[in-house]
Amino acid sequence: MTRYVVKRFLLLIPTLLVVAILIFVLIRIVPGDVVELRLVSGGMFVTKGVVEAERARLGLDKPIWNQFADWMLGLVRLDFGTSMWTGAPISHEIAIRLELSLQLAIMSTLIAVALALPLGTIAALRRGTWIDFVVQFFSVAGLATPSFWLGILLILFLLTYFHWLPPLTFTPLWQDPKANLVQLIWPALAVGYRYSAVTTRMTRSALLEVLREDYVRTAWSKGLAERTIVRRHALRNAMLPVVTVIGLEFAFLIGGLVVTEQVFNLNGIGKLFVDAISRRDYTLIQGLMLFVAAGYLLVNFVIDLLYARLDPRISYG
């Protein structure tokens, strides 16, 4: 087991290297110029010499392979470089926004699970009834609703009925839990609803499968109460695929954050990414993409391990 874990972990390194190369190549063909956007886009008087001097300062005049080598050498020393726009270290740019995005992601996941488990379970147990139908419709509709639109509607709702908007600046949870939750609950709802759709469907079908298994039938025939059967036998076994789906949908969640942070003006990773793209901040886009890819790979690595723990039938040689 330990050997397997170490081996899988080490395999992440070459993968990330290829990811890095791919990202670098992709990013450098993005047209546009960070210097132009920073100095010229306001319409102010600027001379040619200044624009060129800035390009040189950022190393944009160096050959492309040279720029790549710089980035790689930095990465080896765990230095992600500095943002071409702000000049701040990229690790810092990410770090200050991570708390918000992470908290939003966790809250969305919790909301999704809190919605999905009961809904999926009841739909499976009442399969074919109107309850099942409503739940299924609720989840299919969730998949079809753009989370940014849901966000806009939530804002409209809050403005119209409460003349109120979530606070504009982020308060960390440990500083003022109430202010923090009041700010993040709405975007978390917008993302969480959509996210719950997949999980609800997964829970339902996983549970349906388990309910057909012999040991559950045995439990039925022993005359155990429905609640006991569901809780003791079925649900526990159905957790496995649900956990998987939560892991796989991590990427999906990030996508939801990108648009939702925009709607709610949240200072998170998703907004940072969109800003970086529109500013052509090459180094920051690179750093962020690498970070997201690494995050995805790590989450899936952990999910694999969880899988192994939850399901003793899977063995690793």
């Binding site: 993968t15 290829v18 990811v19 791919l22 992709l26 990013i27 063909i29 993005v30 047209p31 546009g32 990427a251 999906f252 990030i254 996508g255 990108v258 648009v259 990414f273 969109v274 793209i277 886009i285 993409m289 997201v292 890819a293 995805y296 790979l297």
Partner: peptide, 23 residues
């Protein structure tokens, strides 16, 4: 390997980058 790597990016992020490249 390439496909594995490409799916490690959220689809919207991949699409954002490609749109940025193509216009």
């Amino acid at each position: 390997r390439l496909a594995d790597i490409l799916i490690s990016f959220p689809i919207i992020i991949l699409a954002l980058v490609i749109v940025a490249i193509l216009g």
